[in-house]
């Protein structure tokens, strides 16, 4: 699994979508998959199977899971900005989690073959602290750092106060004003909340890296498939070719399913939730 990368991705996605999506929806989308699973992963009898497999709750790391929440946003709240934000955020989480050895089932239920590039080991089997030490001793930690650098180099403008004022709030004015009312925070406080994922991601990346180096004292093995001291935990014995073929077949069926849903009802929901092009207002209140 990825750690701080999920937090940093939000800002990179935001940079490219501007007012077309709600930042809160992107952040909720990237958190969705683990929100329903992470609490129980470390106490599960077989953590990788539970977290990413089927049987298990691996369906939370599939594209269809994000689709369900996006459709709820579209159908119930009539908000395109939330639907797109949730979908893109959740899909980004799924794609990122393909990097570890447990992989994900992106096209569940059409394919239950875990798709993985095996960049680092899924190490939930050694407990939360062991998982952190393993992640920050492998390419996982490098992956987090890479996302941090990408945001700082290419998307740092989205962290500015004026960007928050002119893009983030107008894109989802209702939600931000509701948060302001509930928490009684000033604009500066809301800005801290907006930047929260970035500073939280950075703080825990540094904390866990230092924990791995000076407390757990695990060797730094920044190469493919590390760390060597964690047992391999691939969920499938299929070869790479089989994995690609099964996933491709699942992808074709998923695309056909998506097209059918679009024709049957999603297009109607999308039109109904329609916000005028260029509008800064979400369509939550429509109707």
């Amino acid at each position: 699994m990825s750690w701080a990368a999920h937090e940093f991705e939000n800002y990179f996605i935001q940079k490219h979508l501007g007012t077309k999506v709600s930042f809160i929806a992107i952040a909720a989308g990237t958190s969705l998959s683990d929100f329903f699973t992470k609490k129980w992963v470390y106490s599960a009898a077989d953590p990788p199977q539970f977290h990413r497999g089927w049987p298990g709750v691996g369906f939370t790391h599939s594209f269809i899971f994000g689709m369900v929440f996006a459709l709820i946003a579209l159908g119930v709240f009539r908000s395109r900005t939330w639907a797109v934000g949730l979908l893109i955020g959740q899909w980004a989480h799924v794609i990122t989690d393909m990097c570890d050895t447990a992989g994900v089932m992106p096209f569940f239920p059409f394919s239950t073959e875990p798709l993985t590039i095996g960049m680092w080991k899924h190490a939930a089997v050694v407990g939360r602290h062991g998982d952190a030490a393993a992640y920050y001793s492998s390419l996982g930690g490098v992956w987090d750092f890479l996302w941090f650098v990408i945001v700082v180099l290419f998307a740092r403008n989205v962290l500015r106060a004026d960007y928050f004022r002119t893009v983030i709030v107008p894109a989802d004015e209702k939600a931000w004003s509701a948060i302001g009312r509930w928490t009684r925070l000033s604009e500066r406080g809301l800005l801290v909340l907006y930047r929260g994922y970035f500073i939280y991601g950075f703080a825990r990346m540094v904390s866990w890296f230092l924990y791995a180096r000076f407390d757990a004292r695990t060797p730094l093995e920044a190469w493919w498939g590390s760390p060597s001291w964690v047992v391999a935990n691939d969920l499938s014995s299929a070869s790479a070719v089989e994995m690609v073929l099964r996933t491709a077949a699942g992808g074709v069926m998923f695309a056909a399913f998506w097209w059918l849903c679009w024709r049957l009802f999603v297009r109607r929901l999308w039109v109904r939730a329609g916000t005028p092009k260029g509008s800064l207002q979400p369509a939550v209140a429509a109707g």
């Binding site: 928490t183 925070l185 500066r188 406080g189 801290v192 909340l193 929260g196 939280y200 703080a203």
Partner: peptide, 12 residues
């Protein structure tokens, strides 16, 4: 809780 911590330490 981390968000709460940051809001309290940075803003409140």
């Amino acid at each position: 809780l981390a968000f709460l911590y940051f809001v309290v330490v940075i803003e409140v």
